[in-house]
Amino acid sequence: MLSKRLISCLDVRDGRLVKSVRFVDTKDIGDPVSAARRYYEAGLDELVFYDITASSDQRGIMIDVVEEVARQVFIPFSVGGGLRSADDCRKVLEAGAEKVNLNTAAVGNPGVITEAADAFGVQAVVLSMDIRAAGDGSMPSGYEIVTHGGRHATGMDALEWARRGEALGAGEIVVNSIDADGTLEGYELKLTRMIADNVGIPVIASGGGGRPEHLYDALTEGGADAALVASMLHYGHYSVDSIKQHLHDRGLKIRLTH
């Protein structure tokens, strides 16, 4: 049996680690390489780096970060943000990442999912979806895909996009609730469950994790294969160990390293 995965997400801007709360007001919280190494040594299962660097001429910094992480961290990690083509993906994979996260670029050009999957295998392609509840009944599933940190609505139904992403070649899906992101009040369980029940690929719950019991809920009631955490680890509220021990004690299969 596979273990449920604990994944941490590191937002990187201009080579520095930042934490965004509801994607606005980013705060500099340190060096991404040393944070990655610390989490690796603490027994984290996987890492995600989102490059939120605004200007494209600074993008080379991210490749340097990826290479340095790959020299020090021996667990799988993925990289997202600013990847527009299979060629962009190749650069981060060659720098040492196992997977790429496609988000905004895939919304604008869904074919990039297939291109990347054909070139690197479905296991290397993660479709990351930013999702907001659509209260007005305009979306069949009740949830809409948004981009640019929630500032742009796409008019695309979240469930429809998840199914299409899988058909196009995504090997995993990140379900990131923009409504829950940064609140520390728990994952959007209804949304996560709906996606997990309707795709045949692993689902990663994201946005809202604030306490170990939130992860337990996402991995059981939410039907997720993995849960993504940021603030609760970055600010030292919880350790990798304490989160994993909680999940293990409640009967989930978890990789314990100590």
Binding site: M1, L2, S3, R5, D45, V122, Q123, G171, E172, G200, I201, P202, D225, A226, R255
Partner: peptide
């Protein structure tokens, strides 16, 4: 079992 996805991806004992 439909819950077992292929590829087998992740941490296992």
């Amino acid at each position: 079992d439909d819950a077992l996805k292929v590829p087998h991806m992740g941490w296992n004992a």
